[in-house]
């Protein structure tokens, strides 16, 4: 089954939320107005990203981050020959140029920089190909998407998007009971912690904003991030009256009602 569509209808944040919650493995291809990007995941964790024709090899990443000079990059390339990124990394570690931590930190930052840029893409198409992974010769990492989504949400400037996702500030929030969803593992800033500390079905989003002296945009952006990271859910606040009940089934007696529904069930089964 395909997973494709337009970024205008389903944003990058929503896609990452889907990949995270469904623990998907595969590659997401994004075609923006000017360039394309590929982001790969294993069981819902971010492992790799490539933007357009950028040199995403280990040499290219180290050059971009300033860890090596252009001359050194050229030298490495001429010496490395057909070596994979893993072999090349090992060669650099053994030669004492870099340690493993340096290499992984640079790859991690390179991947995150690409993904954070993608949050600003609001035009273009997406397609997710299940089980398609980056080439074997690339070094992959493993990053929790909750933190990535939170950081990406901080960069959202589209009021409409936030308004659509959180139309009613008079609703409350509750922490989700999902394996792996632990708020303590997520890097939150001070403002976000202030909001988190008031999350409780008794407090509406509006009340939390007022207590923390936040405007609508500020509170929506934080709540949006927490929602998309799958850490909280919107719930009806404690004490909020339920909508008026619809008129009941014609027979008021409970047994008669059940009998009527059973007759409907039998009839539809027989069709």
């Amino acid at each position: 089954m395909a997973l494709k569509g337009n970024l205008r209808d389903f944003s990058v944040t929503q896609l990452l939320n889907l990949i995270n919650l469904a623990r998907k493995t595969g590659t997401l291809t994004l075609e923006g107005p000017n360039e394309a990007a590929w982001v790969s995941f294993r069981e819902g964790k971010l492992i790799f990203a490539q933007l357009g024709n950028e040199d995403g090899t280990l040499t290219g990443i180290l050059l971009k981050s300033g860890k090596i000079t252009a001359k050194q990059a050229q030298l490495i390339k001429s010496h490395a020959g057909e070596k994979s990124d893993q072999e090349l990394g090992l060669m650099l570690i053994n030669a004492g140029y870099l340690n493993q931590h340096d290499i992984l930190a640079n790859i991690r930052q390179y991947i995150l920089d690409i993904v954070y840029r993608l949050f600003t893409w609001i035009e273009g198409y997406f397609r997710f190909d299940a089980d398609v992974l980056p080439p074997d010769d690339r070094i992959t990492i493993r990053l929790d998407l909750e933190n990535v989504i939170m950081e990406g949400s901080r960069r959202i400037r589209e009021w409409e998007q936030l308004q659509e996702e959180i139309p009613n500030l008079d609703m409350a929030l509750n922490f989700v009971d999902r394996p792996g969803a632990n708020i303590r593992d997520v890097n939150l800033n001070v403002q976000e912690w202030k909001v988190v500390s008031y999350i409780n079905p008794k407090n509406t989003i509006r009340q939390i904003a007022k207590t923390n002296r936040m405007n609508d945009l500020e509170i929506r952006r934080i709540v949006y991030g927490l929602l998309q990271a799958g850490l909280v859910e919107v719930v009806r606040p404690v004490g909020m009256p339920l909508p008026p009940q619809a008129r009941q089934l014609p027979p008021v007696n409970k047994e008669q009602q059940a009998s009527l529904v059973n007759r409907l069930i039998n009839r539809i089964r027989s069709l």
Partner: peptide
């Protein structure tokens, strides 16, 4: 309007470009 029971039908599941039921649930 009415808090009566409801179900969601993920239609056109016979099409190649249909999203799976689980993906739709999250979406």
């Amino acid at each position: 309007y009415a808090p009566t029971p409801y179900v969601v039908a993920a239609n056109k599941q016979d099409r190649d470009d249909a999203w799976t039921v689980e993906d739709l649930r999250i979406a």
